[in-house]
């Protein structure tokens, strides 16, 4: 059975800080992706090459 070791307060704060950083990075990536697909779609429609 796996031993469970509690984190120290300092480690716990570091974990939270890093998780928050990852979440913000993921949010930024998702927003950028939405913007990119929106822009690609506009260009493709404008060029009349939107063929899937």
């Amino acid at each position: 059975m796996e031993l469970l070791t509690p984190l120290s307060r300092a480690d716990s704060q570091a974990v939270q800080r890093r998780r928050r950083g990852r979440n913000w990075a993921m949010l930024a990536a998702l927003i950028a992706l939405v913007g990119l697909f929106y822009a690609i779609t506009l260009v493709k429609i404008g060029q009349g090459t939107m063929a899937f």
Partner: peptide, 14 residues
């Protein structure tokens, strides 16, 4: 020295 853990401290779960 850090064992794989399910830590519960200050509301943090990993």
């Amino acid at each position: 020295g850090s064992q794989p853990s399910l830590a519960l401290l200050s509301g943090t779960m990993v």
